[in-house]
Design a protein around this nucleic acid. Structure first.
Lengths: 181, 181
DNA sequence: ACATGCATGTAACATGTTACATGATTTA
DNA sequence: TAAATCATGTAACATGTTACATGCATGT
C-alpha cells in the first residue's frame, strides 16, 4: 500500500514520466525505498484508473510518445490523508542478518570473511551517500530550507544507518577473532 | 529467495511444525525477518516437494495431527551453499522515512507530533529487545557460546539500529523546532 | 460467555523480481 | 562495433498481506 505514496509523493513536486520516476527512485530515494520500472508502470496505470493522477501525451522527434504524469487534486488529498496516519513499528528484512544468525553453521574464518566483505560494501555505500548529499543538499552544517528538510533528514538517517552497520561489523569481527580457531 | 533459508535455518537447529516456525519467526527473528503463517505453510509444501525438508505425522490426543518437519541432507547442503554467497548492499524499505521525505507538505507541528510518536514506538521496541536478550542470552557482558554467537550478534545489531532511530528522532525534532512556525 | 491457544489450511489480492521485447540515438 | 540511453511495456513467477474457515481445549 505504500509504493503508490512514493509515486504520488514524487509527483507532488514535479510532473514526471514513468521513466523519470524510475530514475528518481534510483537516485533520490533509494536509501529508504526502491522499485523496478515494471512496478512503476503498473502502478501508474492503476493510479490513473483511480483518478489520483492524470497524464499528458507529449510527442517527441524520432522517439516514441511519452506520458507526463500529474498529481490530481484527489491524488493530493489521498496523499495528505496518508501522511496523517500514525507511525508503525519498524519491520526489518535483511539477508545479511539472516546469514549472521546462522553463523554457528560455518567456521569462524568464513564468518569473518563475510563480515569484512559486508563492511567494505557499506563503506562504499556511505561514500556514495556523502557525495550525493554534497551535490544535492550542499553543506551538511548549514540548515536546509523547509522545501529540502525531508530530503536532508532522510539522507541523514541513511548515513547514520550505514555507519551503524560499519561499527557493528567491526564489533562482530572482533568477537569472532576472540574465538579460538 | 530468502524466506526458504529462514525456514531451513530454523529447521537446522530443531524439528518444528509450521505452527512452531510461525512462533519462532515472531519471537526469535523478528528483528531481521518476519513472515505470516500462511507464507510459512506454503513454503513448507514447496520445500517438501523439492526434497529439502521431510516431515513426520504426529498424532495428538483430541487435537488434529501435526507435521513435524526435519531438514534433509539435501536441504542442509542447499543452506550451506547459500551461506557462502557474497553479501549484497542493504536495501531499505521504510514507511516512516517515506513520510519524512514528504514533510514539506505538512505543517511543522504535525511533523514533530509524528516524530515524537515514532520515537515512542522505537523506545518500546528497544525495551522489549533488551528484555528478550536478558531472558534468552543472559548477560550482555559475558561472551556467548559459539552456538549462540549468531543470535547474540543479530540482537546486538537490532538494538543498535533502534538506538540509531531514537537518536535520529531527537535530532529531527530539534531541527523542526528550530524553524519558525 | 468470550477470548486465547493449538494447528492447519484456502482464496484473493498486492507487491516485487527477472526475463524478454522494440527501435532509434548517442557515447566509448 | 558494441554499449548505453530514452521510453514503453508484457509475461511469468515469487513473495507478502488480509480475510475467512475449522474445531477442540483452556483460561478470565
Amino acid at each position: 500500500m505504500a509504493l503508490r505514496y512514493a509515486v504520488l509523493g514524487l509527483l507532488s513536486k514535479e510532473h514526471l514520466t514513468g521513466y523519470d520516476l524510475t530514475q528518481k527512485f534510483h537516485s533520490h530515494i533509494s536509501h529508504f525505498w526502491n522499485a523496478h520500472h515494471t512496478q512503476i508502470y503498473r502502478e501508474l496505470q492503476k493510479l490513473e484508473k483511480e483518478g489520483l493522477v492524470s497524464y499528458d501525451l507529449v510527442q517527441q522527434h524520432e522517439r516514441p510518445d511519452k506520458k507526463v504524469y500529474t498529481l490530481t487534486d484527489h491524488g493530493l488529498q489521498d496523499l495528505l490523508g496518508w501522511m496523517a496516519e500514525p507511525p508503525k513499528p519498524p519491520s526489518m528484512k535483511n539477508e545479511t542478518l539472516l546469514r549472521v544468525s546462522l553463523f554457528h553453521l560455518i567456521p569462524p574464518d568464513q564468518a569473518v570473511q563475510y563480515l569484512e566483505a559486508s563492511r567494505q560494501t557499506h563503506v562504499e555505500v556511505l561514500n556514495a551517500m556523502k557525495q550525493w548529499g554534497e551535490l544535492h543538499l550542499g553543506s551538511a552544517d548549514a540548515p536546509p530550507s523547509y522545501e529540502l528538510i525531508g530530503e536532508t533528514l532522510t539522507l541523514d538517517f541513511g548515513m547514520r544507518f550505514i555507519q551503524t552497520w560499519i561499527d557493528w561489523c567491526d564489533y562482530a569481527i572482533r568477537m569472532f577473532r576472540s574465538f579460538p580457531e
